[in-house]
Design a protein around this nucleic acid. Structure first.
Length: 493
RNA sequence: GCGUCCAUAGCUCAGCGGUAGAGCAGUCCCCUUUUAAGGGAAAGGUCCUGAGUUCGAAUCUCAGUGGACGCACCA
């Protein structure tokens, strides 16, 4: 239903008539404020012991949305953000003029009520309404109360409607907020400094992904929406703004949409000087645990038909060992050419130009990922697919990088940050070669970043953690769109 | 980008070649201790859009639009 039709729906026309009738009777349908004394949930807590059939003299003022009307207006279900309470509008408790206005109320309207607390003989805590005022006349009809709104397209396009009607959606999205706030509070308490780095980047660096490209008119310059804040955050470590910085915000990647991908998604990225990737592993566990405890009070959660156990320490295994375990092939000693051949033998498609690391990654994705249900740190990723991380301190082919997997999904990615400016320059140059040979996601050279390293980045551990996926896992949500307030959708014509 | 499925009243759904149905919501009437309140009456539709097949299309075919899921890409 829409207010932008040539001919308004008959239910809208009816409500417009009621709106006019309210004005006629001297009731402003869109007033400015209402002083309330309680949230509904406060009353349920406060009057928990009140016995059925008991009337009190305690006067309260409540405000909320009418979600149901029964018995010709005698009973209203009044919902506020905390919960529901029944408003009891007995004709003997209301003046004539208010009784007349009662007929002009609809499900969906916002009202403020004043009255005394009572519990009905059937046990429903209620407010016996002595006075009420309309706080907002709703013109559009809400979806049916019993089945609610199930059309996922409408739920995503008109999230406000979904939130009004579906308790589950409200719950999940509120839990998201609690999760983010708990992690932020933890980092704050531990002395990490929250910062905001640019969202508009001249060069989209810090990850391998396709950016959204836009244009700044007065600078007459191409800009990208950031794909990761990484390179700016490490510049702050170089500058010594703080030895511990973090940013919780959006990244944008111009790639496919799925139940686990939204073009804009939220990550927490943090960098800590004088630390390495081992420290980041512990921190990853702690952050996920903090998030989990914030909404569950427990470290085991149900996701679909699985139980995820976040109690630490989590399993740690190197990527090549996991590949060996699940494919029977040890790629570590193989040449690039042998690796490609073995991948093909395993039925894993690889490009003839793929590097050793890309081959290992491809086999890992195909053979291992789906098995990593319980939290697992996959450590020591190939060096050639990790252009921003330090070379492994013992194995030259590997890097000090790990990805954390839960339920088969990558949740976190972290490294001992590469601090050697000459090595970094060489890595970017390798990436540029891959870019030239057709890999649009290879990372572009960022000369200023290399120069920043030239002034000195201390040993630093860095971590990126995908908030949306974590929230999915912790709230048992099957789609990333369920945990994003306004997921990206195609415009409907 | 590819494949499969979905789109009918405000909402939730049935109907699947023979002129459009239910429940809930809305309207009117009855009912002032109900809570998916109840009883009665009337109303409400470009069956997503366009083309085709057919005597006849919500129904079959093709194309388009939007969505869901899977694959690819990726986090």
């Amino acid at each position: 239903m829409s207010l932008f039709e040539d001919e308004l729906h008959y239910t809208i026309a009816t409500r417009l008539e009621k709106r006019d009738a309210l004005i006629e009777a001297g009731h402003e349908p869109y007033p400015y404020r209402f002083q309330r004394t309680h949230y509904n949930q406060d009353l349920h807590t406060q009057y928990d012991a009140l016995e059925s059939g008991v009337e009190t003299e305690d006067v309260v003022r409540l405000a909320g949305r009418i979600m149901a009307i029964r018995n010709n207006g005698m009973f209203l279900d009044l919902h506020d953000t905390s919960g529901k309470i029944q408003a009891f509008c007995h004709k003997e408790s209301l003046d004539e003029d208010l009784l007349a206005i009662l007929k002009l109320l609809d499900v969906g309207d916002m009202v403020g009520v004043e009255g005394s607390i009572r519990r009905t003989p059937r046990g429903e805590l209620s407010v016996r309404v002595k006075r009420f005022e309309i706080l907002c006349k709703a013109l559009l009809q809400l979806p049916e109360k019993y089945h609610g709104l199930t059309d996922v397209e409408v739920r995503y396009r008109q999230r406000y409607l979904d939130l009004i009607v579906n308790e589950d959606s409200r719950h999940t999205l509120r839990q998201r907020s609690k999760i983010v706030s708990a992690m932020r509070r933890y980092l704050d308490d531990k002395g990490y400094m929250e910062v905001e780095t640019p969202m508009l980047h001249p060069i989209a660096g810090g990850a391998s992904a396709n950016p959204f490209v836009t244009h700044h008119y007065s600078l007459d310059q191409e800009m990208c929406l950031r794909i990761a804040p990484e390179l700016y955050l490490k510049r702050l470590i170089v500058g010594g703004l703080s030895d511990k910085v973090f940013e919780i915000n959006r990244c944008f990647r111009n790639e496919g949409i799925s139940t686990r991908h939204n073009p804009e998604f939220t990550s927490i990225e943090l960098y800590e000087a004088y630390s390495d990737y081992n420290d980041m592993m512990s921190l990853t566990e702690t952050l996920v645990q903090v998030a989990c405890l914030a909404i569950h009070g427990d470290l085991k959660v149900e996701y679909g038909d699985k139980t995820l156990d976040f109690i630490g320490p989590w399993k740690r295994a190197s990527m090549v060992d996991l590949v060996t375990e699940h494919s029977g092939v040890d790629f570590l000693p193989l040449s690039e050419e042998e690796a490609r051949q073995k991948a093909n033998d395993l039925g894993v498609y690889v490009e003839p130009t793929d590097s050793w690391g890309k081959v290992v990654e491809a086999v890992f994705a195909e053979k291992v990922e789906a098995h990593l249900i319980q939290p697992t740190h996959v450590i020591d990723l190939p060096r050639d697919i990790s252009p921003l991380s330090k070379v492994h301190r013992h194995v030259a082919r590997l890097s000090e990088r790990f990805e954390t997997y839960i339920n088969g999904w990558e949740i976190a990615n972290a490294f001992s940050e590469l601090s050697d400016p000459l090595d970094q320059k060489a890595r970017f140059e390798d990436q540029m070669k891959e870019r030239a040979s057709g890999d649009s996601e290879a990372q572009p050279m960022d000369e200023d970043y290399v120069n920043a390293l030239g002034y000195g980045l201390p040993p630093t551990g860095g971590l990126g953690l995908g908030i949306d996926r974590l929230v999915m896992l912790l709230t048992n949500s099957p789609s990333i769109r369920d945990v994003i307030l306004f997921p990206t959708l195609k415009v409907k014509h």
